[in-house]
């Protein structure tokens, strides 16, 4: 199978990565060579195989819903690209 330019552009929308025409073409070429390599898996019949979802056979542990960090609001907000008092600022979402 081949991944065409239209598919690459659709995937880039889903992945929220803007691409110009040249980059999209390069990605299509790269992805095709990678998927050619991945297609090897189709040689195997896996109908009766259980998928391995996690190597660590653990069940999720419960913990008390308790605050463990001290007051770090200032430090966290310092990392934000744009803030207004105690809020993160984003472009207008609702008109």
């Amino acid at each position: 199978m081949t991944i065409d330019l239209k598919t690459v552009k659709h995937i880039s929308k889903l992945a929220r990565i803007s691409l110009d025409e040249k980059k999209a073409e390069k990605l299509a070429t790269d992805m095709n060579s990678i998927f050619e390599f991945i297609e090897k898996l189709n040689e195997l019949n896996t109908d009766k195989v259980e998928p391995l979802t996690s190597i660590a056979e653990t069940t999720l542990r419960f913990r008390n819903d308790k605050i463990t960090s001290e007051n770090i609001r200032e430090k966290i907000l310092k990392n934000s690209p744009e803030k207004n008092d105690d809020f993160f600022v984003v472009p207008k979402v609702v008109e």
């Binding site: 929220r16 966290i76 690209p81 472009p91 207008k92």
Partner: peptide, 18 residues
């Protein structure tokens, strides 16, 4: 680009993400 890290300006939220 919202809570930390680089942000490139965009004309709306989706454009900013991309």
């Amino acid at each position: 680009g919202v809570k930390y890290g680089l942000r490139s300006p965009g004309k709306n939220l989706i454009d900013m993400y991309e």
